[in-house]
Design a protein around this nucleic acid. Structure first.
Lengths: 219, 219
DNA sequence: CGGTAATCTAGAACAAGTTTCAGAACTGAA
DNA sequence: TTCAGTTCTGAAACTTGTTCTAGATTACCG
């Protein structure tokens, strides 16, 4: 939780491709993390308990995941991967791209509702992460972007405008989840807001012909 | 950082209107908090140091602010109030409501850029806050909403659609700030995304005649 | 003014994230 | 198989948020 590590330690994600036992350890840790998070949320994921319950020494846990936030962000990455493959199986049915994205995100939202504590742990970790976790957070962010772009079902590559719209949707997604998790917004309101954000996809669709757009604002 | 306090302690914000010395203590604490946050961000605000530097016992600090997150959210509330009065002096010039909001938020953004560490501490605390801080977070949220609605300069009361658009803008605002603070997005990108979100104000302006809108998505 | 309840102080104590270290276990190469 | 280097273990130590306690101060009321 200190601002920076001493000198960007090599860590695991670097070169050596992990032996089988190491891969197994990593899985066990992530599984334990998700299990503990599943009941109790962020606070219930205690590093000592994760280590013990994963059959791993505390020092080893920290070698695999340099902080609790790293661990939970990695857990989110893991869960997102599952979700992504699940979502791929039943692509959204609506014909409007924005509606498809909204549909997909609502499906993801319902999945999170089944494990609100897990969602709490992951999302809080994600938004609390500082610079030292940037690479991992970025991976999660890219995954989320991929899911949304998938749902849009574009023909060609997205325009910068569309990418901006997708980012706004992602921002709304994360932030709305937080308001829901902390009991400040209802499920219905999250739905409304996500759908509102998704309208931007229509707005940014062909709005590329004139030079206005983002530049229209004088600031 | 525990999930809940034992039984909703009466706390300060309740009935008694604080004596003069108490008010002074509170100010000193908030001032110290902002000062420490100003250099070092979230991690640099250490409760012992805040207490000592404010000339107050640790127990007293915790009586005024039941947790570090409470303290930082209160600090944010304080800063936002300043910002609000500052912004009021020079209302945005643009004629388009969305552009006015974007202009106002960019002004706020520039203010935050002058104290990135302070911004870090406040925003991180805000998004990390759990249910026990909901009332305080809600106050900050209402303040932000007020600032945005002010910038819009509506004639009558906002429609539900407009409120949703404002919430999406707020979500984007918070989340984009976080990506900037953690070095994953540039200032330019934050600007683009905020302006993109602000386009929703135009979208949600008169889009109230038909029952579609948010309900158009089948989900 | 005197008394009583609430508040404040100083400091210890506790909880959980993180670091450190000495030695055991494992890996890969000669 | 043996050796050198890495990884893992077990346990203590350290850091910082949070709680607790006993006594000093303060605020308020008669």
């Amino acid at each position: 939780m200190t601002t920076e590590s001493r000198a960007a330690r090599p860590a695991l994600p670097a070169s050596p491709p992990l032996t089988e036992r190491q891969e197994a350890r990593r899985r066990r840790i992530l599984h334990t993390s998700a299990r503990l998070a599943g009941r109790g949320g962020f606070d219930a994921v205690q590093m000592r308990e994760v280590a013990e319950s994963s059959g791993v020494a505390l020092g080893t846990l920290y070698r695999y995941f340099p902080s609790k936030v790293h661990l939970l962000v990695a857990t989110m990455q893991d869960q997102l991967q599952h979700l992504h493959t699940t979502l791929r199986k039943r692509p959204p049915s609506d014909e409007d791209p924005g509606a498809r994205v909204a549909q997909t995100l609502m499906r993801a939202f319902r999945a999170l509702q089944r494990e609100p504590h897990l969602a709490d742990a992951m999302v809080r970790a994600l938004t609390f992460a500082d610079r030292s976790v940037s690479p991992e957070v970025d991976t999660v962010s890219r995954l989320t972007t991929t899911i949304i772009l998938d749902a849009m079902g574009l023909d060609g590559p997205p325009t910068p405008e569309q990418l901006s719209a997708v980012r706004v949707i992602e921002h709304t997604w994360h932030s709305a989840l937080i308001t829901w998790l902390s009991g400040r917004a209802s499920i219905a309101q999250v739905k409304i807001d996500i759908e509102m954000a998704c309208r931007l996809i229509g707005v940014a669709a062909g709005a590329d012909g004139d030079g206005s757009g983002a530049g229209a604002v004088t600031g």
